[in-house]
Write a protein that binds this DNA or RNA. Structure first.
Lengths: 206, 206
DNA sequence: CATCGATTTGAACAGGAATTCAAAAACGGA
DNA sequence: TCCGTTTTTGAATTCCTGTTCAAATCGATG
C-alpha cells in the first residue's frame, strides 16, 4: 500500500501569502543572495515545482517578501503610535518600536539583510529608502506636534533630528542582531534616548 | 601554433594578497552569500583551480577578505587622525572619514555586506563588533581630550556620545550606498555634525 | 642550462540546483 | 457522484558550480 501525502491545497492568494512568508524565513536563514528555490520550498512545506508554479521567477518572490516584511514592520510601528496621544510617550514608544526585541527578531533581521543588497540592487535600494523616508516622517510628526504644544524645544529642525533618530535605530538594529555583548535592546534604547533628550530639551520621563 | 597564456606567477604571499583583494571586489559585486569561486577567480585573473590551490576553503578566503577590508578602513581613519592635533579638527575630520565618498565607495560597500551576514554568521558578527568598538574608542579619545582641554562641554558621558556617533556613520553609510536621493556624503556629514555640536557644546567651525 | 619544487592550467568528474512537464491529486460546482 | 479546473508532485533534463588531478609552465637555484 503506497500512501501519497500531498500538501494541503490552498487558494491562489492564500498560497501566495504562505510563500511570501516562507521566503521571508528563508531569506533570514540564508541571506538575500544565498537563498535558493529549495530553501523556500522547504520552509513552505512544498516542492520546488509548486513554488515555481506560483512564482516562475524566484527573484520576484524575494522582492515581494522584502516588501511585505517592510510594510509589516512599518504598520506595526504606526499601530503602536496610534494608541497614544502624549508626544513624550509617543516618542519613547516609537524609539522602542524601531529596535529589535533581541538578536533573533525576524523583522529587523530581514531588513538588515537588505542593507548590503541595496547597494547592488536598485529595487532593494528603493524599497529601503522609501521605508527610511516614511519613518523619518513619522518622527517628524511627533516632534512637530510636541514643539507646537510647547513640550519639546527642538535643538535643530525636525527633519534633521528625525533623520538622526531613524539612523540610530537602524544602526543599533545591526549591533543587536550582530550580538554586541554590551548593547542589547535596553542599552540601545537608552543611547537613542540620550540623543532624543538633548534634541528635544525634554527629559522624556513618562 | 598554439599559444598558452599563463597568469603571471607570483610568490605565495603576493598571490594571497591578490586573492584577498579579488575576493573583496567579488563580495562587493555579488554579496557575501552570493559570491562564488568563479567570481573570485575572474576578479583575480586566474582559474578556479589556482584559487583553490591557495585557499582550499573559499569561506576562509572570504573571512580574510572581510577582515582585511575592515582593517584597511580602520587604519585609514587612524592615519588621517594622526595628522591632526586640534580636537575640533579631529572630530570633524573623523566624522568625514567614517562616511563613504559616494554610493560606490568600496570600503563601505564591503562593510555593509557584512551587516546582514553578521546576524547569521558568528565570525562576521565578531568582526563587525570589534570594528565598532574600536571606532567608539577612537571617538572617545577625541572627546575626552577635548573635554580635558575645555574645548568640549559634553552633554553625556563620552561612551554614549561616541557610540551614537559611530552608529550614525554606519547608518548613513547604508543610506548613501543605497542611493538616497537627498542624502549624500555632504548631507550625512552635516546631519552627524548637528548631533556632534549639541553633544560637545562646540559649534565645530574650523 | 638543467633540475626541482611551486604554481597554474584545463579537462574530467561529481553533486546540486533550476527548469520543464506529464501525471496525479485535490477542490468546486453541477 | 462525476467532471473540469487548479494545484501539486516527482522524475527527467539541463545547467552550473565546486572539486580533483595529471600535465604544463614558471622561477629559483646550483
Amino acid at each position: 500500500m503506497k500512501v501519497v501525502v500531498v500538501a494541503q491545497r490552498k487558494s491562489r492568494s492564500d498560497r501566495r501569502i504562505d510563500l511570501i512568508d516562507a521566503a521571508r524565513r528563508a531569506i533570514i536563514r540564508h541571506g538575500v543572495d544565498g537563498v535558493q528555490l529549495s530553501h523556500v520550498a522547504e520552509e513552505a512545506g512544498l516542492t520546488s515545482g509548486a513554488v515555481l508554479y506560483h512564482y516562475p521567477d524566484l527573484r520576484e518572490l524575494l522582492v515581494e517578501a522584502q516588501h511585505a516584511g517592510m510594510e509589516r514592520f512599518y504598520e506595526q510601528r504606526l499601530r503602536q503610535l496610534a494608541k497614544l496621544t502624549d508626544p513624550v510617550e509617543k516618542l519613547v514608544v516609537t524609539i522602542r518600536s524601531g529596535l529589535p526585541t533581541g538578536p533573533l527578531d525576524p523583522d529587523v533581521r530581514l531588513l538588515n539583510e537588505l542593507g548590503g543588497a541595496a547597494g547592488r540592487n536598485r529595487v532593494y535600494g528603493v524599497l529601503l529608502t522609501s521605508l527610511y523616508d516614511r519613518q523619518v516622517s513619522m518622527y517628524q510628526a511627533i516632534l512637530d506636534t510636541g514643539a507646537a504644544l510647547g513640550v519639546f524645544r527642538l535643538s535643530a529642525d525636525s527633519v534633521t533630528i528625525s533623520r538622526n533618530l531613524v539612523a540610530l535605530e537602524d544602526a543599533y538594529g545591526y549591533r543587536i542582531t550582530a550580538r554586541h555583548p554590551l548593547i542589547g535592546p535596553d542599552e540601545a534604547a537608552e543611547l537613542i534616548l540620550s540623543y532624543a533628550r538633548a534634541a528635544t530639551g525634554n527629559d522624556l520621563a513618562h
